[in-house]
């Protein structure tokens, strides 16, 4: 469906991202204690995290498919999606840090979610280093696929379970005002969901360019 040769989804991605960027800055937002105007970061920071999770899940799916089929093209896809996911991870952590500077007072406040996301990025950087340490392409594909799958499932307790055991300073945790009941009026949703789709499509686009280059390299080699 998301073929590189079709352009509708790229246009859709650009439009949705542009809508989220402009709408996020211009449209009315609910007033909340502590958060105030910084609530607008929901449109960028949180949506980038969602995009990252979706892209990294794509990378996991391709690693699984690689292990069951031994098709080199799947491994190329796994790597490209992991790279695009990491890009959003870095952007998400930077936007989160800027937001934290104005809401919590420090760029790095030792929040459990902040720490967990930094560790999750470390896992994927280790994955790229692992990839680059092999000479033999088949060995590289197989072993990095194994690590990718293991790392993804090791990340889930990190991102979803551990922060819940201690109080996080994130909105909605530990008595901080959350978004849940404001979501109901739909103001935030109107930008939030399109932004997730927009970022994800942009990520898929980045990845597909890389995939195309690598695919050509692979067939040229053979």
């Amino acid at each position: 469906m998301f073929s590189i040769k079709k352009s509708w989804w790229k246009i859709l991605g650009v439009l949705l991202t542009a809508y989220a960027l402009l709408g996020g800055l211009l449209m009315e937002v609910p007033r909340l204690a502590i958060l105030n105007e910084t609530i607008r970061n929901l449109y960028y920071h949180v949506t980038m995290w969602f995009g990252m999770i979706i892209l990294l899940t794509g990378s996991l799916v391709y690693s699984l498919r690689y292990l069951s089929s031994k098709n080199e093209h799947f491994d190329i896809r796994a790597e490209a999606y992991a790279k695009a996911g990491c890009l959003f991870g870095v952007l998400g952590i930077v936007t989160g840090m800027v937001w934290a500077r104005y809401t919590w007072g420090e760029f790095w406040s030792g929040d459990p979610k902040q720490n967990a996301s930094a560790i999750a990025l470390l896992i994927y950087f280790a994955y790229f280093i692992l990839r680059s340490s092999f000479e033999d392409p088949q060995q590289r594909s197989r072993i990095s696929a194994v690590y990718n799958i293991f790392a993804y499932f090791a990340m889930i307790p990190l991102l979803f379970i551990l922060p819940r055991l201690t109080d996080s300073m994130h909105p909605g945790n530990g008595g901080n005002p959350g978004f849940n009941y404001f979501d109901l009026d739909g103001k935030l949703r109107m930008i939030f969901y399109p932004a997730i789709i927009g970022w994800t499509l942009m990520g898929v686009w980045f990845a597909s360019i890389k995939i195309r280059i690598q695919d050509i390299r692979l067939t040229q080699d053979l």
Partner: peptide, 13 residues
Amino acid sequence: MLMAILSFPVIIP
């Protein structure tokens, strides 16, 4: 070295 950098992040939980 690879052993250490692969292990650190996954062992943190």
